[in-house]
């Protein structure tokens, strides 16, 4: 499955969930699939999408918070998994699109091919950990996880392909923030 297909699977099932995006192509593919007010496109601060998501999840216990993470991003801030496991926010769904490369910078190898991120998530006490590869399977898992308490960790193995010339997020960073805050107040 291509990552853009995986992103589409999730996006098609979303309602008012808040989604924090890891930097790089993940932002661009999600923006292209469906630009939502509830999307926080983190264009810098590589690794911190899961920290931002955790801050939101603790502060908004009645709102579902989803993190669209990348393998390179997760590996840069592994400590965040341990903080999530310490605090156990029920409303957090952490999805990692794992292509085993730093795709946004030219497909250099990450170490997620040798290191089992799902095992790290289990050690970090996520209440449910899934690893999926096929689209149909992913669709079923996501449907179920959107209804369940977390913290849930889903590792989605995806291919390295991404569209050349895919649009960048066209909003300014301040607009992204303003829209996101108003979606929270809604």
């Amino acid at each position: 499955m291509k990552r853009k297909e995986a992103i589409k699977v999730v996006v098609d099932l979303l309602e008012k969930e808040l989604v924090v995006h890891a930097n790089g192509m993940i932002c661009r593919e999600s923006f292209t699939a469906c630009d939502r007010m509830e999307n926080f496109y983190m264009v810098g601060s590589m690794g911190l999408a899961s920290s931002i998501g955790l801050g939101l999840a603790i502060s908004l216990p009645h709102r579902k918070i989803i993190i669209f993470d990348g393998d390179g991003n997760v590996l840069m801030n592994l400590g965040s998994l341990t903080m999530i496991g310490d605090l156990l926010p029920k409303n957090l769904l952490h999805i990692v699109f794992d292509n085993e490369v730093y795709g946004s910078t030219g497909n250099q190898r990450t170490i997620s091919g040798t290191i089992k991120l799902e095992e790290i998530a289990k050690s970090a006490r996520y209440s449910r950990v899934e690893k999926v590869k096929e689209k149909d399977e992913f669709k079923n898992v996501i449907k179920d996880c959107l209804k369940c308490d977390g913290p849930i960790f889903i590792l989605v193995k995806v291919s390295r392909e991404s569209d050349e010339g895919i649009a960048r997020v066209s909003h300014t960073t301040e607009t992204i923030k303003r829209r996101f805050i108003s979606a929270i107040k809604d």
Binding site: F40, S45, S51, S59, L60, S80, D86
Partner: peptide, 25 residues
């Protein structure tokens, strides 16, 4: 609420999430 962080940059990220949700971090 005081959240023990594992790194300072992660704390800055968590605080940013809290701010977006309406808190003063």
């Amino acid at each position: 609420i005081y959240i023990p962080s594992v790194r300072e940059d992660a704390a800055v990220g968590i605080a940013a999430g809290a701010y977006l949700s309406g808190k003063s971090p």
